[in-house]
Amino acid sequence: MNTIFKFIRKLFRIALIANVALFVVFFFDLDGKLLFNVVEPFLKKHYDSMERKDTLKAPYDMDKYPKYDFNS
């Protein structure tokens, strides 16, 4: 009985700490600050340095597909 009570108390304490921590993140917009100052610049750097196919070199294949038969 005592063990169960202790377990519930521990669980309650963890839930309380998690709630408080999340509320601090929420209230002080720490998620926004992290995304704006760290995550987005990092991802932008990655996307800017990506090698990309030169799409302008793709041929414009006018006759690649069979002629479409318009019935109406």
Binding site: D31, G32, L35, L43, K44, H46
Partner: peptide
């Protein structure tokens, strides 16, 4: 894809 990484993370904002 840039449009996903740069965009959808700040969705709560």
């Amino acid at each position: 894809y840039r449009w996903i990484g740069q965009t959808y993370l700040p969705v709560l904002h």
